[in-house]
Structures are given as structure tokens and as C-alpha cells.
């Protein structure tokens, strides 16, 4: 075989190989980035920054319906409403106040409405030493028992804050006790957790060896 013929065969073979590779690269989908799996956008309820509850002060500020606080629309002035207990000394919540859940303090020991409400004037609250406190000034009432929490709240170390940390540039919005705590059942209720991170490989949660713990 002459040298030229060998070269020709080589070139022919190379042409076939190159054309084949070219075709392979063009049609090969593995060379493209694989499409990721769909991840749903997080529900906007998890982005909500508003307070979980609205206080009397909020309603006054927003100029809203205050009929819930119009005690003497039903009660008679100068006549403290009686409080009834069942056989286990558990308070019987009247059906007009069925939205009230008695859950302040453990073992149902804090079961007297007038520990906080003012029996002489239902439009105000009172601390145990008899000082009257308005519905718009509840930290003073709560702090009469929960002193350390009031101290921390006043220092900004307890409770929710938003706005400006630099008070020379703007104001900070400090939430009040009842913006987070239900005064009748102050423990923060449990809630649904926002979705876990979606792992790149496999469904969320599979990468963890501690999944069996709950």
C-alpha cells in the first residue's frame, strides 16, 4: 500500500469520526444542564410581618369598631358582675363572653376576672394595689406581675420591634403585650412551620439521619 493510500484511509476514518462526534454533540441532551425540579413559591402568609393580634390602642388608632369594649352597653354601672364557679373552683365563662379562653397561669389558679379587670369600672383595668390602668396602657398592668418582662420590654429586649434601629433616622414601632399574647391565654400558640429547604438531590428531609426523631 502506498503512503498516499494510507493517508487517504486515515483521513476518511477521521472524517467519519468527526462527523459522528459532531452529530452526537448536537443531539446529545446530556451535554445540556438538566432541568431542575419544580419548587413552589413560599406562601405569602409566611412573609407576613403584621402583629398576630390587635389591641385596644390599635383599634382606637385605626378608628375602628370599639363595641367589644362598650361594657356598659350590657352591664349595669356600679354593679360588679358576679363570677360563678363550678364544683372544681373552675370559672364558668358566661356565654356572652364565650370567646374568652381561661388559660392565664397554670393549674387554673388565676381564675378571678378582677385580678386584672376593674370591678368598679369595667372600662378600665386595675393592678392588685388598686391602681387603675387604661386599656391603652397594658404593659403597666402586665408588668405589675411580670416585672422582669416589663424591664426587658422597656429596654427593647423583649417583644417585637420594627422600623429603625437608628432612632436618629426614623422611629421604631414597638409592639405591646397584647399584640402577641392573648391576655386570657398568654402562651404563644403553636403554628405551622414554613417549608423546609428543598435539597438538590431527592425530596426534602431524606438527607437527614434524624428524621425518625418526631
Amino acid at each position: 500500500m502506498s503512503k498516499d493510500t494510507v493517508t487517504q484511509y486515515w483521513l476518511g476514518a477521521l472524517t467519519v469520526v468527526f462527523l459522528g462526534l459532531g452529530g452526537f454533540f448536537i443531539v446529545n441532551s446530556a451535554a445540556r444542564p438538566a432541568a431542575g425540579k419544580e419548587i413552589p413559591l413560599v406562601d405569602v402568609k409566611f412573609l407576613d410581618r403584621t402583629a398576630s393580634r390587635r389591641t385596644y390602642a390599635d383599634l382606637v388608632k385605626a378608628n375602628e369598631d370599639l363595641s367589644d369594649y362598650d361594657c356598659y352597653g350590657c352591664h349595669e354601672k356600679g354593679k360588679p358582675p358576679p363570677i360563678r364557679y363550678d364544683a372544681n373552683q373552675k370559672i364558668i365563662v358566661p356565654k356572652e363572653h364565650s370567646d374568652v379562653v381561661m388559660g392565664h397561669g397554670s393549674h387554673d389558679r388565676n381564675n378571678l376576672c378582677y385580678n386584672c379587670h376593674n370591678e368598679q369600672n369595667l372600662l378600665t383595668l386595675q393592678v392588685r394595689d388598686g391602681r387603675e390602668v387604661g386599656f391603652d396602657n397594658i404593659p403597666q398592668l402586665c408588668g405589675s406581675c411580670h416585672g422582669p418582662n416589663l424591664r426587658d420590654w422597656e429596654a427593647g429586649a423583649h417583644g417585637r420591634t420594627s422600623g429603625y434601629w437608628d432612632r436618629s433616622l426614623g422611629t421604631a414601632d414597638r409592639l405591646s403585650c397584647a399584640n402577641c399574647h392573648n391576655p386570657h391565654a398568654p402562651r404563644i400558640p403553636t403554628r405551622e412551620s414554613a417549608p423546609a429547604p428543598h435539597s438538590l438531590h431527592g425530596p426534602a428531609g431524606t438527607s437527614s439521619p434524624h428524621e425518625t426523631t418526631h
Binding site: T190, R191, S193, A196, G205, S207, S208, H214
Partner: peptide, 8 residues
Amino acid sequence: DHTYEAKS
């Protein structure tokens, strides 16, 4: 565990 999912 940072991948927990909990209803509550």
C-alpha cells in the same frame, strides 16, 4: 436537623 417539617 434543619430539614424538619412540622404542622405545629
